[in-house]
Write a protein that binds this DNA or RNA. Structure first.
Lengths: 243, 243
DNA sequence: GAGCCCCTTCCTGTATACAGAAGGTGGGCA
DNA sequence: TGCCCACCTTCTGTATACAGGAAGGGGCTC
């Protein structure tokens, strides 16, 4: 039970913020994204209620919404826990995101976007490079997320945009979960600028390819080795038993 | 407030069913799908609680989940209402479903499915034709839905499968909402068999095209005329004012 | 010494009470 | 007669109480 997290929230509360379930949802979401709440962490309703200074009613609502967003697992009569997606689901999430974000990027390129918006995206990409240069991984991730989040918000097709928002969150969680410990950063130099160039040039298929390549590289950076399962156990000990 | 609906639920309750929020979610979902609950219908918590014989706590949870599924609209301090998607959103929902279901079909065809599963799908398609033949539109819709629902469940990529389940529900709602009144049915002869043939033949791109064509035809059957907006009002009365 | 069972404790499921916001309706006023 | 304001009804937001289920620990038995 990360005390630093509790402390941070308590500080925010004392600052006079109005607390209700959207606030709690956002706080938990951010805490999970930044790994202050690692997968598997228990989220008891009473504890959360005390932290945020509200009763279980509000917390329950927030938890229900977080479960709908695939951030936590809620099982009957059991404590809610931060989700810990399997390797399998990680691969599937990436595949889904390639499909959806590729389409969104293609739509965006095809229909052309406002120059101001493009400038903003390029500023974020530049900020990401700079953050990476000075070794500030937290800021780098924030800028990278901002780009993809902005893409989702700009999507001409809002249904796809909402789906993309969900997928960006889910991939971020699994990236944090499965990142190779030896890797300092998941920064892929040039990927974002390439995407923005295709977007600026109105090259729909180029934008789609840029997204697909970017996400494939990202996935390849993860440690998605063979999953530990009972089947593996049996295979490993085959012939070792006395039978 | 459709009394027939209430009566049906009350009967189900007396039958001894165990009521909790998943049950309520399912009942409301089905009622919306079958248009027993038309878009815009008010869903007050107390009324629902009385109908299902539970307190507001349970109903609230169900409503929160229904809102996450895009079945109802929940605004602060306001009664929950059955959603009434705009024409714009309808088009976007269809586009999203074409993308996702096309991919699922392609995956399924590419990886090949069990013969038994294919048989089951073909039985549903046959049952749909027969239901259409005898003019039983309710049964026809049920069989058509079963095919697409099965596709979603079979998706090798479960993330995409879950997204597809959501999209099938949402398209069904808007089909019911925007169907031309003159049309007795939205049956498209041969569409489902064509899809199944591509699936059986392992023709991934053929399956994708079959899905895309099917959904495009379906969308074309709807009455998605120009939407009524204030802009139209101004245009209509341009030059009529005294100024 | 190891395994099993019971008990305790924690946590969720559900119902209910009270406060406050929203919207409709009626009366009063110009 | 038309408009506006105040009241009242209805409904949601939130907190709290009580009941039941799950998990963990300690003690007992083999």
């Amino acid at each position: 039970m990360s005390h630093s997290w509790k402390a941070g929230v308590e500080a925010a509360i004392r600052a006079g913020e109005r607390i209700s379930d959207p606030y709690i949802v956002e706080q938990v979401r951010q805490a999970v994204l930044s790994q202050r709440l690692p997968p598997g962490t228990r989220l008891p309703e009473v504890a959360l209620g005390e932290i945020f200074g509200v009763s279980r009613s509000v917390v329950r609502r927030a938890l229900t919404r977080l479960a709908a967003e695939h951030v936590i697992d809620q099982r009957p009569n059991q404590v809610a826990r931060v989700r810990s997606p399997s390797v399998e689901e990680t691969r599937e999430t990436f595949a889904a995101r390639r499909l959806v974000e590729g389409e969104v990027a293609a739509l965006l390129a095809g229909r052309g976007l406002q120059p101001g918006v493009l400038d903003e995206l390029e500023r974020e990409a530049q900020a990401e490079v700079e953050a990476h240069g000075r070794g500030d991984e937290t800021a780098r991730i924030a800028h990278s997320l901002a780009i993809h989040h902005r893409l989702a918000a700009l999507s001409p097709n809002r249904v796809l945009g909402a789906m993309l928002t969900d997928l960006v969150l889910r991939t971020s969680i699994v990236i944090a979960l499965y990142k190779r410990p030896t890797l300092a950063s998941c920064f892929l130099e040039g990927d974002h600028p390439r995407l923005l160039a295709a977007l600026a040039g109105g090259d729909a298929e180029g934008a789609r390819r840029a997204i697909e390549a970017h996400l494939a590289s990202l996935e390849a950076l993860l440690d998605l080795g063979p999953r530990e399962e009972e089947a593996d156990l049996r295979a490993i000990f085959a012939g070792v038993t006395t039978s």
